[in-house]
């Protein structure tokens, strides 16, 4: 018998602070496995966001920087331009990337910065108590839309990935999901593609991951995955966007 699955060197053997069933834990592991398999651990620099993943740098066994809320792609731009030989990626939630950081996101993409982005869409602000996010679905109850998101008051779920795909500097965008083991494996392939694009100097790549937040969706972990499968992916269709 041989070991066919175990924690890789790029993910420290530490307990993570996430709630039971949180998608951040799966996504962290996928990023670590991609870095490990591409053999780039010694030259990778990750940028952690503000959000539940604010301490991602504690879990990854490679260099990392923190950024102010929403500014991950500005920090990543600077690091990549000063250290073009390094592989630089950001890991950002929907509040970070598509609310407070929309400006930085759009301009980094429009400049075609040679960066990889891991975008965790859990349709809420997890860290601060489950408030409405730009990606919250119509009708979805959050702590600031207690009757459900309503288009007149709150606008529509923001499709930032589709918007970014219009920009010529962007080379690759794919939306994936964590709602079952096969989907998790597809998500890993997409993250790997985004890193490979950077290695090949192709420009800006982004992977949007539909990721469960059982705590602020008010659902059990398995029900959260079923909600992505049955509801969320109708609003945010999976697949290659660019």
């Amino acid at each position: 018998m041989k070991k066919t699955f175990k924690r890789c060197q790029s993910l420290y053997d530490l307990p993570a602070h996430y709630c039971p069933g949180c998608g951040h834990g799966i996504a962290h592991r996928l990023v670590a496995e991609v870095v490990q398999e591409l053999g780039i651990r010694e030259k990778t620099i990750g940028i952690a966001p503000v959000g539940c993943a604010v301490m991602a740098y504690d879990y990854w066994n490679f260099d990392c920087s923190e950024a102010a809320h929403g500014r991950a792609l500005a920090v990543a731009t600077a690091i990549k331009r000063v250290h073009p030989q390094n592989i630089v990626f950001t890991y950002q939630g929907d509040g970070d990337l598509a609310a407070i950081g929309t400006n930085e996101t759009i301009h980094a993409a429009n400049r075609g910065e040679n960066l990889s982005v891991v975008f965790i869409n859990n349709a809420v602000y997890g860290m601060t108590g489950g408030q409405l996010a730009p990606t919250t679905l119509l009708g979805q109850k959050t702590s600031t839309s207690i009757e459900g998101r309503e288009k007149k008051a709150h606008g529509y779920p923001l499709k930032i990935s589709e918007m970014l795909a219009l920009l010529p500097g962007v080379c690759y965008i794919e939306r994936v999901s964590l709602h079952s083991p096969p989907e998790v494996l597809k998500a890993k392939r997409a993250i790997k593609q985004a890193f490979k694009n950077q290695i090949n100097n192709l420009g800006f790549s982004l992977v949007e991951i539909l990721s469960p937040c059982p705590t602020y969706w008010g659902l059990a972990p398995k029900e959260s995955l079923d909600w992505i499968r049955d509801v969320m992916q109708k609003e945010f269709p999976l697949g290659r966007i660019k």
Binding site: F5, K6, R7, C22, G25, P181
Partner: peptide, 19 residues
Amino acid sequence: IGCMQCAVICPDCCIEVDK
């Protein structure tokens, strides 16, 4: 059967598989 589905979905990387 060593399919690894349990390990792939575990958010806390608690599972190792031997096959």
